[in-house]
Nucleic acid binder design. Sequence first.
DNA 1: GTACGTTTGCAACGTTGTTGCATTTGAAAT
DNA 2: ATTTCAAATGCAACAACGTTGCAAACGTAC
Lengths: 138, 138
Amino acid sequence: MKAVEILNNHKIKRTSCREGIIEVVMTAKHALSENEIRERLSGNYDRTTFYRSFKTLEECKIIHKIVIDNQLVKYALDNTVTHKNEHAHFFCTKCNTVQCLDNVTVQKYKLPDGYSDFETDVLIKGICVNCKNQNKID
Amino acid sequence: MKAVEILNNHKIKRTSCREGIIEVVMTAKHALSENEIRERLSGNYDRTTFYRSFKTLEECKIIHKIVIDNQLVKYALDNTVTHKNEHAHFFCTKCNTVQCLDNVTVQKYKLPDGYSDFETDVLIKGICVNCKNQNKID
DNA sequence: GTACGTTTGCAACGTTGTTGCATTTGAAAT
DNA sequence: ATTTCAAATGCAACAACGTTGCAAACGTAC
Ligand SMILES: [Mn+2]
Ligand SMILES: [Mn+2]
Ligand SMILES: [Zn+2]
Ligand SMILES: [Zn+2]
């Protein structure tokens, strides 16, 4: 699936910024921050444009946002094929990467009487397999 | 349990700012933001002092921080009696309140091979019982 | 009451994110 | 290909949140 097709499918304008963001996020192994995406992009865009593009892409559910603590924000593709479930996210506190755990489905929590929910965010903090293996080498 | 006692138990200095924060958070029904705490406080403190106090109280596990999306931060008491489990948090998108769901224990999620974790944050977004009942009246 | 280490207030700064407005761009119609 | 117009962009200005260094004030132990 090409970035342009994705934009067409969602009936939103093809712009180089949107196209670039999708391409970068599509090929990334991890979720990426604004700056990480910018670095990987060919064009140069104003921060405003970036934020507005993220917002649009998020509203179309082309990408989704993952927030870690209060200052770190990362974006990942919201492919309906791989991300069909509500999935948990993993944050490695060693290498600071964020991953979608597509196979870790979020359970439905039983709420107190009268409470209703429409979304459950699960963020697991720990050490990823790469960082674990790196330790062995040291 | 008095605020001063809590500070003594943790062997950190009793200051009016720390004492005030603890008292406010102790008597609150919901988790409170920096500004909500400031409003309920008698003294007036610099933002820097506030942030440093929160940090200290958090490190001592007297309070804990709950982050909603990326800009909303709230604080709640970290009483080992009521908060003994890793518990989920609830964010009402109507009244913007955050509550510790002390009875909603967070399960241990099964991670991919080689991954280890030390913390799981669960934030459930929905409508609280107050807001639900308010709708009925309208 | 003194002494000393800790905490505070202030100023300055950095980052993140938003808004209004003029200009540019994309895509559809001609 | 050219025209057209809504939508997207860049820029400037702004607000909120959070951090750092340093001098002054405070809390506690002697
Ligand atoms: Mn994800
Ligand atoms: Mn809590
Ligand atoms: Zn890692
Ligand atoms: Zn509510």
